[in-house]
Amino acid sequence: MKIIVCIKQVPDTTEIKLDPVTGTMIRDGVPSIMNPDDKGGLEMALALKDKYGAHVTVITMGPPQADDILREAFAMGADRAIHLSDRKFAGADTLATSNAIAGALRVLDYDLIITGRQAIDGDTAQVGPQIAEHLDLPQVTYVEDLQFDGEKTFTIRKSTEEGYQMLQVEGPCIVTVLATANKARYMSVRGIVEAYDREVEVWNYNNISVDEAKLGLNGSPTRVWKSFTKGAKAAGKVFEMEPEEAANLIIEKLKEKFII
């Protein structure tokens, strides 16, 4: 079985601090990590490899420093790493990003493509299904568990608001995976040592199969029209009152805010 896992390097948003005076984000010194849902997806691929013997390719699109997460994937057990990097890819929204990645996937072999559900820097959850559409593959999103019958069929547990769904699909297909699906393994010491000697293939536009007009800023239907910071808010009111009154006041506020 051939599995391709799409991964992304993101700033660790849990490490982001706010400037106590201005209320703005302090970006300096925020570490970059492999997106948690993607790491869950990589673990799913490696678990399939352990059980059935699979070849696992990881692919990422991003600036040169994204090389780090590909090395990390090597150290966890990935077999091949591809780094999509070209000025032509820059300024892409989700659709243009998905076109670039789909362009690379078109020239690769796969039985299963895994992406994370969403990346913590954008939370859009769009790129996985968009890749699926470009490649005309069935998709299952919000995947919590995936079982393989050893032949062709995947039985998948998909998380929903009310519980879960059990779905069945044959490969090739795309699944988008939750970080909570499985606990990612640690990098092995030997893996870490070796990861830095292994070859990460750096691909540009010429390596992939896609119409150039669909890439980067030109291939992006959405644009940022303007961005602004949320105004700092003023302190609210403080009351000293009896518990009964306090409870009633809170309920009043909850109604006002449509919480209840």
Partner: peptide, 23 residues
């Protein structure tokens, strides 16, 4: 933007080749 809408929306945006703004 439910588990259904977030599954359907991006699939449609790619099929219709148009933009989708999430959440």
């Amino acid at each position: 933007a439910t588990t259904i809408g977030r599954d359907l929306g991006p699939r449609l945006s790619a099929r219709l080749e148009t933009g989708l703004t999430a959440d």
